[in-house]
Design a protein around this nucleic acid. Structure first.
Lengths: 112, 112
DNA sequence: CTGCAATATTCCTTGACAGGAATATTCCTA
DNA sequence: TAGGAATATTCCTGTCAAGGAATATTGCAG
């Protein structure tokens, strides 16, 4: 798993930017407005996101349209797969436990 | 989504610790050994992971057993759900596009 | 070509954080 | 009870990242 994805998302403003971009591409000014950021800070955060590969940019005259890149998220998703494996195991363990309980239920309760 | 999960994972050693813990609980010394860390640094990273809720600890005499907590990962998983939604949309768009292509294929090519 | 709008970059300062070294704490065993 | 093992904490230092302010860059309308 690529660390830079985590570092990029580990900053509140950047996380919000990413979530804004879920609804479609936005321009720097838009983002600055909606997040109450000054333009330079917005640019800087977008630069970080760009370097981390979380967004891509398309110039259109004066404006720059920033758009989410899905690949890092898919990568994150794939990484989580392993962890899903673990919690499935635990669910299996729970299953087993419940089965044992059921078996005990069939025999009369063994409490002294 | 909770930012502290990202910040905690945004450090190489900590990410490796988490991945080590996938195979089961470990003690501080174990982790320090496997990661070539000095004991205090291991302790400190584990402290951060603990505060972030990514691990839990169970004291057993001298030793402390650190164990993964799954909840933050499930939370991350849930968060990703939205993004999965997006890439499904795009797949749908691709489907549509391919359908159109197919339709065009039926008619003779309209190139001037 | 002048000026304005949109964006990027630079410089500066401040605060957070990681690693090193030393020390404190707790528990076990002889 | 003394000492050693396992772990946590503290203090110090250097590095890096974020925000502010100012400035540079690019594109367009007049």
């Amino acid at each position: 798993m690529d660390i830079t994805t985590f570092s990029a998302l580990a900053e509140p403003h950047r996380l919000r930017i990413v979530e804004l971009l879920l609804d479609g591409p936005l321009t720097v000014g838009d983002i600055a407005d909606r997040l109450q950021l000054r333009q330079p800070q917005a640019s800087k955060h977008l630069r970080v996101l760009l370097d981390a590969g979380l967004v891509e940019v398309h110039a259109e005259a004066n404006r720059r349209n920033y758009k989410l890149r899905l690949e890092p998220f898919q990568q994150l998703d794939a990484w989580l797969e392993t962890y899903r494996g673990v919690w499935d195991e635990r669910l299996d363990a729970l299953d087993l436990y419940l089965q044992k309980l059921r078996q005990k239920d069939i025999k009369p309760t063994g409490k002294p």
